[in-house]
Design a binder for these strands. Structure first.
Lengths: 220, 220
DNA sequence: CGCCCTTCTTGAACGTGTTCAACTACGACC
DNA sequence: GGTCGTAGTTGAACACGTTCAAGAAGGGCG
């Protein structure tokens, strides 16, 4: 897991660590490339030798947060349980883990939201992180004792990841203290999702769900 | 409606017109403030005397597009019809109107998506444009002959506006030729929305819908 | 050692959005 | 007519992200 120890790899790591620290301390916009380079004791150009842009330095930040989320979830998801409980655990720990970075995320969001950006959660560059997150939601679904339509169950992990992107979108714009409203959103949306998933087996609802799934597959 | 004709108002208009033209010709990023100022025959500082930032020059662009959309819809919404037909008309004309500006929207999107930005569709500054759009969706709903639960019907215009924001989000990221996938999304999502709206009167579904509406009201 | 090639590093320079102290134009009031 | 104050205007200057030609370090090979 630990990287090679060549000169370059060391410098690269030094720059990432410094950047992540400064991002956390001062936010994205206020942390200039010059400041990162100076704090790391290298030149500006050197930072650009390892990272094609300032935004790419944030991938490391992503990974850090995602690791924390994975750790926080592992314990909660160890034992099987109802779908509601598992989903709530996954999503709430997600919010918890992000809380310290709310300001940072706000200033960085515009970069990640840009259509062509490699930092967009939908981009090819983000595929590993995305797949990892989907895997986590798959384990949420797999360990769930609740009865769910098989076709929906297969697609659910990806849909839940999408839902989490939506929650994150709301969270970024949420200015309530401690992002309380986002928590409220999760608390109340999760049971709703559960109810809808349960209804997916009813006769009247099944064709609608099928249509939604087929549309989703077509457009993603 | 036409503005005053003071010196300042003239200059302001000149700058806006030039900016809108250049944005359309070259996109957002490639149109520099220096270029706008030069093409308008004023100094850079003068542009900043009237507009606090480059992004603010885009509000005029918004208004232009929205006017075009309103015009395109008026005719289609004149006569009453089914909910599906009216909603499809409203949303498809929305896409049509935006098509010429897809590249522009892509490069500008990051600015509008920023949480604190006055150009965010959720911001206070965008309230007039937002309310106008919601009004349009209200006329879509009001003229609809389809039976819809009254509580949902009251809230539906705002929800449809939100849906259109979602469509726009998809559209911005849609790289298919002519944004064909976005059209597909509208074509197939509209009947789905109609079906769900119709189901809202069923006994099993009503409490779920109530919960969704109450959650939405709480969090907006 | 001397040579060469790759890897790594530098800092000045470019073009950008934005700011600001200074300047001009012009209308109102004495 | 003269004077003053506001509205309008200027362009140099700033800080930023990014680029690039140039050089330094290091190591394999004769």
């Amino acid at each position: 897991m630990a990287g090679e120890s060549t000169k370059g790899e060391q410098t690269r790591q030094l720059i990432v660590d410094t950047a992540v620290r400064l991002f956390g301390e001062q936010g994205y916009d206020k942390t200039t490339m010059r400041a990162i380079a100076a704090a790391a004791g290298v030149s500006v150009g050197n930072a650009y030798y390892y990272f094609p842009s300032k935004g790419h330095l944030v991938q490391a930040f992503y990974t850090t947060v995602q690791d924390a989320h994975a750790d926080a979830c592992r314990q909660a998801l160890q034992a099987p349980g109802t779908f509601v409980d598992r989903l709530r655990a996954a999503m709430l720990t997600g919010v918890d883990v992000m809380v310290p970075y709310h300001d940072f995320a706000g200033s960085f969001f515009k970069t990640a939201a840009e259509p062509g950006s490699p930092l967009s959660p939908f981009s090819a560059d983000s595929a590993p992180a995305r797949e990892r997150s989907v895997r986590m939601f798959r384990s949420v679904v797999d360990g769930a004792t609740t009865k769910i339509d098989p076709e929906l169950r297969a697609e659910l992990p990806e849909l839940l990841w999408l839902a989490q992107m939506g929650v994150t979108l709301y969270w970024v714009h949420d200015t309530s203290p401690g992002q309380a409203k986002t928590r409220l959103l999760v608390e109340r949306a999760v049971p709703l999702i559960d109810r809808l998933a349960g209804m997916s087996r009813f006769r009247v609802f099944k064709p609608v769900m099928r249509e939604i799934l087929s549309l989703y597959r077509l457009l993603r």
